[in-house]
């Protein structure tokens, strides 16, 4: 079991405690940025999980939107507790991923990406026309209870933040462990060589399917958090193809090396977006797009690669100063 409690695990745990402490200090606008980062971070982890198999979805807003709209629908029928809403969002998004997975697991490369996009646009087309869910205007989300308790108005957002942080923490640790498990590593092997995986006795498609459901559930969690954060769901900001594009953006920005980095990527994205919109509303897309291009050109492995760069530099410096590095080739 000790292998599970590795540096990433402790890093994430430390991050969780830092967030819970910060919660007391944050101004509300910062907390909103934090909440949105946690939400998009969850979705981006789902994309990272797929990315490890070489699959990219240009339509994960499908599951994100499904999670978000599940909150709206459950509230319509009177369910209003955060845990039930979370379970509901995970179940519907996961259920949808399970069904679509039977199909999507047969596709690779650009076809996988585009089929996902087609499905997300179908949902968009439906939601934009369903009047009981507000069609293009969307529908408001009311305040929720926490395990049956109602938070006072000052305490509501901080409480929401605590729950969102814990959900995101569980999602991140779970995904990290999954990626280290036999199945998680196997799907990286699927990227390398599906035939070999088949001839070792496991179905590459099944491995992908499981991964797809996991990524759908993660996107659903993100959708639930976002719906509660914004207090409103609508097709344009939850399901449109550009929303899916933003998720891929975060994945690239963060790099696919580590689930913890994904949240940092989501935060950077959120800050970029907020500040660009604040100070240069005319060109915020330009700034965002420019940042993405810089990352693609100069940091192909995302922000996470800064860390390995720093490490190798440190190792180099250590070697220069005459220390002997041992055990470098191990592991």
């Amino acid at each position: 079991m000790t292998r599970l409690l590795d540096r990433t695990f402790w890093g994430l745990t430390l991050g969780l405690f830092a967030l819970l402490l910060l919660n007391f200090l944050l101004e509300e606008w910062m907390r909103s940025i934090g909440l949105q980062s946690l939400s998009r971070g969850c979705v981006a982890i789902g994309l990272l999980v797929l990315w490890r198999t070489g699959l990219v979805s240009f339509g994960h807003a499908l599951f994100f939107g499904f999670g978000a709209y599940t909150v709206a629908m459950l509230q319509i029928i009177g369910i209003n507790d955060i845990i039930l809403l979370l379970i509901g969002g995970m179940a519907t998004a996961g259920g949808l991923a399970l069904v679509l997975g039977f199909l999507l697991r047969q596709y690779r490369a650009i076809f996988f990406a585009l089929l996902n996009m087609a499905f997300s646009m179908i949902l968009y087309g439906v939601l934009a026309k369903v009047e009981s869910l507000g069609s293009t205007d969307g529908i408001g989300i009311s305040q929720v209870t926490f395990f049956g308790f109602t938070a006072s108005s000052e305490a509501y957002r901080p409480t929401l933040f605590v729950f969102a942080a814990i959900f995101a923490y569980i999602a991140a640790v779970g995904s990290h462990w999954y990626l280290k498990s036999t199945l998680g590593l196997m799907t990286m092997a699927v990227r390398e060589n599906e035939i070999r995986v088949e001839y070792l006795g496991y179905s590459a498609e099944k491995a992908i399917h499981i991964k797809y459901v996991l990524s759908g559930v993660l996107a659903g969690v993100g959708g639930v958090i976002m719906a509660l954060t914004v207090g409103h769901v609508d097709p344009d900001s939850m399901v449109y193809w550009t929303v899916s594009g933003d998720f891929v953006f975060i994945t690239i920005l963060a790099g696919t090396g580590n689930v913890g980095a994904t949240f940092i990527g989501a935060l950077v994205y959120e800050l970029l977006r907020t500040y660009a919109f604040e100070f240069a509303p005319e060109i915020w897309q330009l700034i965002l797009g420019g940042a993405l291009l810089l990352i693609i050109m100069f940091l192909p492995d995302g922000l996470w690669s800064l860390r390995s760069e720093w490490r190798s530099r440190r190792a180099l410096a250590a070697a220069r100063s005459g220390k002997t590095e041992k055990g470098e080739a191990g592991q």
Binding site: V56, F58, A109, I110, A113, G245, V248, F249, I252, E282, I283, W284, Q285, L286, L288, G289, G290, L292, L293, I296, P300
Partner: peptide, 26 residues
């Protein structure tokens, strides 16, 4: 980008799209 992963190329053109859309607005 011709020898990069096809998804990266799509994303780069997405970034280019964002930039050009704002250039139009400017």
């Amino acid at each position: 980008l011709y020898n990069r992963d096809e998804h990266i190329v799509v994303l780069a053109t997405f970034a280019g799209f964002l930039v050009l859309e704002d250039v139009i607005l400017l």
